[in-house]
C-alpha cells in the first residue's frame, strides 16, 4: 500500500476474531478481519447471508452476547482501543459516538413504549437536556428521516407503525446524537425502492453535513454502487477482497466477487433475489482446508485446496485473497 492516511482514519479493526462457543463446536463467525473506516466515508461490507457481516459490526460495540465472544484482535476508534475497554467506556460510545441501525425493524423497538420516548432516551442517556428539548429534537429528526406527521407519531407505539416507518424511527434513533460512526446493518432491506432511495440520500447527507462515517452492510451491490466509497467483500468470516468502488466494479478481482456481481438483481426487477453462486456457504464448523471459497470456485487450482491464500495487493488499495493475485497486479 502506498498511501498512508492514518490521521484520517476513524475506526481501525485489526485481525478481529469473534467466535461462538456452541455445544457443537467453535463457530469462527469472524475469523481475522482487518478493516478501516476513514473519516467522512461510506464503507460498504457485502457478502452472502451468514458470512459474518453483522457479527463484525456488533463486535465494534461489544453487542455480542453469549455464547459469542471477541477472542482476539483490536478495534480502535480514533486510536483508542475498544477491545478490553471497560463496559462504562463502551456504553459512553453506544448510541452517542457510534450508533447502529439494526437489520430487523419489526422487532427492534420495544412494544410497550412510544417510539418518541424510545428515541428521546437515546438523547437523555448521553446529554443533559430537558424533556421538552429532547422531544423537540426527536420531532426534528423524525421530520428529517421523512416520517410524516412527526408530532403525532411521537406518541405512537411501534405496532401502530408500518415496517418502513419503524425503520425510519430506528434510523432517527441512530442519527439523533449525530454519531461519528453509523453502522447500518441492511438498513433498507425492509423498505420499498423509493423509500430506500430516500434513506440512502439521507445517509449521504448525514455524511456530508456532520462528517459522519458510515459502515453500510448490505446484500445489495446496487446500493453499494450508489453510495459507497470503499468496499469490503466478506466470505465465511474473512475478507476476500477490498477495493474502492470503481476498482471493485471495473477491475473485479476475486471469483467470489465476480459471482456476487453477476447475481445483482436487474434494476427493474420488483423483488430482490438472493445471490445464486453455485454451491453453498460452507458450514463454519467444518471449513475446507485451503481457500474457503475453493469448493465453489471455477478457477480453483491445486494450491487452493492445500493452502489458505493471503490478501494479495493488486495496487491502488485493492487487495484480493486469491492465489491468482499472488504476484500482484493483474491475475496470473
Amino acid at each position: 500500500m502506498s498511501e498512508q492516511q492514518n490521521n484520517a482514519e476513524l475506526l481501525k479493526i485489526t485481525d478481529l476474531k469473534t467466535h461462538f462457543f456452541t455445544h457443537k463446536g467453535v463457530v469462527p463467525a469472524v475469523d481475522g478481519v482487518t478493516l478501516e473506516i476513514p473519516k467522512r466515508q461510506i464503507v460498504g461490507v457485502v457478502g452472502e447471508s451468514g458470512c459474518g457481516k453483522s457479527v463484525t459490526a456488533m463486535s465494534i460495540l461489544q453487542l455480542i452476547s453469549r455464547p459469542g465472544r471477541i477472542v482476539s484482535g483490536s478495534i480502535r476508534l480514533d486510536g483508542k482501543e475498544l477491545v478490553g475497554a471497560g463496559i462504562d467506556e463502551i456504553r459512553e460510545l453506544r448510541g452517542n459516538k457510534i450508533s447502529v441501525i439494526f437489520q430487523e425493524p419489526m422487532t427492534s423497538l420495544n412494544p410497550v413504549y412510544t417510539v418518541g420516548r424510545q428515541v428521546s432516551e437515546a438523547i437523555t442517556t448521553h446529554q443533559q437536556v430537558s424533556k421538552q428539548e429532547a422531544k423537540q429534537r426527536v420531532i426534528d429528526i423524525f421530520k428529517a428521516v421523512g416520517i410524516p406527521e412527526a408530532e403525532k407519531r411521537f406518541k405512537a407505539y411501534p405496532h401502530q407503525l408500518s415496517g418502513g416507518l419503524r425503520q425510519r424511527v430506528m434510523i432517527g434513533m441512530a442519527m439523533v446524537c449525530r454519531p461519528q460512526l453509523l453502522i447500518a446493518d441492511e438498513p433498507t432491506t425492509a423498505l420499498d425502492v423509493t423509500i430506500e432511495a430516500q434513506i440512502l440520500h439521507l445517509m449521504k447527507q448525514l455524511e456530508s453535513d456532520f462528517g459522519t462515517s458510515i459502515m453500510l452492510i448490505t446484500h445489495n451491490l446496487g446500493v453499494v454502487a450508489e453510495v459507497c466509497d470503499y468496499v469490503y467483500v466478506m466470505y465465511a468470516g474473512k475478507i476476500m477482497e477490498q477495493a474502492n468502488i470503481f476498482d471493485l466494479f471495473d477491475h473485479t478481482g476475486h471469483p467470489y466477487t465476480k459471482g456476487l456481481l453477476q447475481s445483482i438483481p436487474k434494476p427493474m426487477a420488483e423483488k430482490q433475489r438472493l445471490y445464486n453462486i453455485k454451491g453453498m456457504v460452507p458450514n463454519l464448523l467444518r471449513l475446507p482446508k485451503g481457500c474457503r471459497f475453493c469448493p465453489r470456485c471455477e478457477f480453483a487450482m491445486q494450491e487452493c485446496h492445500e493452502h489458505e491464500p493471503e490478501l494479495y495487493d493488486a495496487g491502488n488499495q485493492h487487495l484480493v485473497r486469491c492465489f491468482l493475485y499472488k504476484n500482484g497486479g493483474e491475475p496470473a
Binding site: 456504553r91 453506544r94 448510541g95 439494526f102 420495544n110 432516551e121 437515546a122 434513533m173
Partner: peptide, 14 residues
Amino acid sequence: NDFIRTARAKGLRE
C-alpha cells in the same frame, strides 16, 4: 429480544 439489543446499543446501563 431484538429490542433489548437496541436498548443496549443506546448506551443504557444494564
